[in-house]
Write a protein that binds this DNA or RNA. Sequence first.
DNA 1: ATAAAAATTTGACTCTCAGTCAAAAAATGC
DNA 2: GCATTTTTTGACTGAGAGTCAAATTTTTAT
Lengths: 242, 242
Amino acid sequence: MRVTMARKVREKQEREALIVEKSDELLKEHGYHGFNLDDLAECVEYSKGTLYQHFESKEDIVLAVVIEHIKYRAELFKKASEFQGRARERMTGVGMADSILGKLVPHSFALNQFVQTPSVWERTSAKMREIAKEMMDKVGEPPQAILRDAVASGDFPDGVVPHSVMAGLICLAKGTHLISQAQMVPCDELQRIASQDLPQNYDYFLDGVGWEPLSKVWDYNETRRRLRDEVFHTEIAQITEF
Amino acid sequence: MRVTMARKVREKQEREALIVEKSDELLKEHGYHGFNLDDLAECVEYSKGTLYQHFESKEDIVLAVVIEHIKYRAELFKKASEFQGRARERMTGVGMADSILGKLVPHSFALNQFVQTPSVWERTSAKMREIAKEMMDKVGEPPQAILRDAVASGDFPDGVVPHSVMAGLICLAKGTHLISQAQMVPCDELQRIASQDLPQNYDYFLDGVGWEPLSKVWDYNETRRRLRDEVFHTEIAQITEF
DNA sequence: ATAAAAATTTGACTCTCAGTCAAAAAATGC
DNA sequence: GCATTTTTTGACTGAGAGTCAAATTTTTAT
């Protein structure tokens, strides 16, 4: 039966989406330790056994939640890269997208990191890991396209490896988000400063690389203002303070 | 009894050190999920009940292990900050210390991050958290001293907030180490590049900040060579490839 | 429409493991 | 050497991940 099959597949997908959605809520509310499959089963109104029809393990469910966050991140990056402006402005937009994600889905980065802990990762299914990797590639596409444009337009300095710059930016962003959620830091002011000054540090780094136009001849705060109004209007409206 | 008491305290400390040491080994080998207290009890040749005389929970033991890593990090930072040279050279040494730690104790950063997951952190004892925070302060001291020197010597540019720079460096380093241990990244080359190019990215960032002497007038690869030979000789000897 | 067959769902059950605690053992004091 | 205090022990409890045979639902065949 063609029709029946199609409905079944759709229902299965819908239920899977429901499980992931409720898991995200439970994880957000109770953290990983407080998250258990008996509660989840009750919450989605299916038995525990049925959960195992969709996911191989508890960790697999957590990875599915993380994949949703990655998907959202890829969307925001895409939007940033479509901004009309110089390549460096668009890369600034990518950094801003990350900041926005950190505010809209605060548990996102820590959960992402957690699920990549070797002992957690190895309990996820190969299928889910595959999807996660594909989704991560999608995240990488916009920044890579921007880098290509930067090189093509001559804004990017000779002798600098584009991927190295991307690595630097991504590491800077990742480190910042994790520091801002950290329980202990090498210096008390650090936490407040880190998340607050990420845009500034982005500017420093790109100036150091020599990516034109440098911040002394271009007002990137103005760029960020435009990004805020023109690109991330909807997202920022959902954040109480920005 | 004075003498008896002193011996008892010492024995307790020694046993605690043994538990932490063996836990570190077990965690390194089997990861967090494969690490259980029955195995640990057998390994240290004490019963499970005795473990609970020293630590409030499994997570408390993990935090104790992380504290040892932090202690080692503080030592390396201290050594770096005592290098004879310009402030920026010494800060470069701090970055190098982090890279060395990442190679000598590869599971260190991921475990550090893991223990700070809210649901793990809240299961640790207040006492252990206190020690962790004190140790973290020790980590922060050398970089802060270097920053003070940089400002005093005039190497540090006006109008830049010193702590913001420290935040940037720490975030860059943290992000890099976590990326290098990550299971999924936005782009395949990233992982190799990230850890390999951290010194380079450090230079870019500090150039962007405008911290004198800039890398175009000073050879920081030479600085790193000197650090390697003069400061981190012993540590680097323990690493197979650097 | 009905029965047989196939697919899906269920929750009681197993097993592992963190954490407890009463009893045993060891250390201390007199 | 005996009584008291301190320390150690490991059997036990409870929580929760993962399983699987039985129950239920859906599909197919007649």
